[in-house]
Write a protein that binds this DNA or RNA. Structure first.
Lengths: 266, 266
DNA sequence: CGAAGCATTGAGGCGCATCAATCCCCGTGG
DNA sequence: CCACGGGGATTGATGCGCCTCAATGCTTCG
């Protein structure tokens, strides 16, 4: 039991890496200054000069079509990848082929940091919609971070915050019921959309039910049932992948299990 | 359901931080050159000069008695902590007081990296036996890492490898049964003891059944039952916290679920 | 030596996985 | 235009693994 599908295999076969040539976008244009999500990205807070130098690093900005892979487990670490547009999922699998979705990535997020430890990617990244990423050559990033200590600190914080995020996820897996996880997931998405200037109440899920299930440590059917329940409670409206949060406080209450008769924690 | 005990509270109360004054050990003696676990620690691979400079950072080496706290969630990040002797657990808790054991730490491990993201510790660390740690002042470590790029790279790799470790743990939580997790846990411990020059077959658990349960996302009783089962299979001998692995290949088979009639994955 | 904490074992129930059938949506081609 | 097929989503029935509650044994330490 508990053997989740290998979430990568099906897509990997659709995209033997290298088959889809990266599409170079605006190679001569400064990447960061006019980027909509620069305030969330790695060079945030860097001085003008540092920011310019960082922009010079980004020699390639590439487009990835929906469903295709950007990098794969065991690829040598060459770049970190900053999402500029669209969204991705990353999948981690062991030797036995059991795998899971480790994260969903939105504009401003930087993917691939887990590769630094071994100089090889341990996850595979797939576009959930037509997307655009900036390629950050890691070697040169290291050099630049040496020149600009603030950048080094940002990188350290980025790495550390991934550890904390994983801690929180572990906590969720251990302590929350399926419904609480689902509520937590939707609230997390909502928050991230707000950070990016979108509505907190209304958004479109870019990932399948199966991806959500994998991310939450559940099965697809359980996710569906949770969604059905949220609908019946009139807390969230779903139509396909379009989400409408009707009762945000109610959803937050669900996340903390206040709906059940658990020990009264204020 | 699923509300694990707050693993920190009981011990926190026994040790309001500051009550136990750190015991300064050998302040004038170079810390790293003669350390038994220097080969596993942060400055590994650093040049002679860099190693000397790193040693100078370590102005304090302190002893912590069994059960007492070393640092606590929300403490400002001042030091990273390198375990020199003994062992620790770190606990992470959310606002509701639900918590879990995030990791167990052995000599050569460096604790506190998750604090870099917010400049405050997010976990609390407790000694599982009388222990000794080196205090690495983080600000000064940053400066030294700037002087010695190799040290910076080691730090980056350390952070990144914590992310990968958490990925693996998540995978374990999602894909493995209680018994497989228990087998995986024991094998992990065994491996780490070997790295430190101890026996692969025979060791003492420093943590309680409850700690193990929390770490594995299980309940104490389930851990006990798994132990009982391993004992009946003559794969592992337990007497209290002393462990004797009688059948290492058998244990590895259990970890991958080959005992059950799962789909024949070679 | 008694108390407190830790560990073990048993009985019973619940939450989620599993298996299976059906539905819906959408792109494709006759 | 509709028939067709395929992948994703939904819903139901059933069973199992682990949690929960509870009683008892064991170890440790003042």
């Amino acid at each position: 039991m508990h053997s989740l599908l290998n979430v990568a295999t099906d897509l990997e076969e659709r995209n033997p890496i290298g088959v889809v040539p990266p599409i170079n976008v605006n190679p001569y244009r400064a990447a960061c200054v006019d980027c909509r999500v620069s305030s969330l990205c790695l060079p945030t807070g860097l001085c003008k000069h540092g920011n310019d130098r960082f922009s010079e690093l980004i020699r390639q900005r590439i487009r990835i079509k929906k469903g295709y892979g950007l990098y794969h487990a065991n690829d040598p670490l060459e770049y970190l990848y900053a999402v500029r547009l669209g969204s991705f999922k990353t999948c981690f699998a062991n030797a036995e082929g059991q795998g899971l979705v480790t994260n969903f990535w939105m504009p401003g997020d930087t993917m691939g940091c887990d590769a630094i430890s071994t100089n090889r990617h341990v996850c595979s990244a797939f576009a959930l919609e037509d997307s655009e990423v900036c390629l950050i050559p890691y070697q040169r990033l290291e050099s630049l971070a040496h020149e600009f200590p603030f950048l080094q600190q940002s990188l350290n914080r980025l790495l550390s915050s991934e550890i904390v995020r994983e801690h929180k996820r572990l906590l969720m897996m251990c302590n929350l019921t399926a419904e609480e996880r689902m509520a937590s997931f939707l609230l997390g998405l909502s928050k991230r959309y707000v950070e990016r200037g979108f509505s907190a109440h209304s958004f479109v899920l870019r990932m399948s039910r199966d991806d959500i299930a994998s991310y939450l440590g559940l099965r697809l059917e359980t996710v569906c049932r949770c969604i059905a329940h949220l609908r019946h409670l009139d807390i969230v409206q779903f139509s396909g992948r379009t989400v409408e949060i009707l009762n945000l406080p109610g959803l937050k209450a669900l996340e903390h299990g206040y709906s059940k008769g658990s020990a009264a924690n204020q």
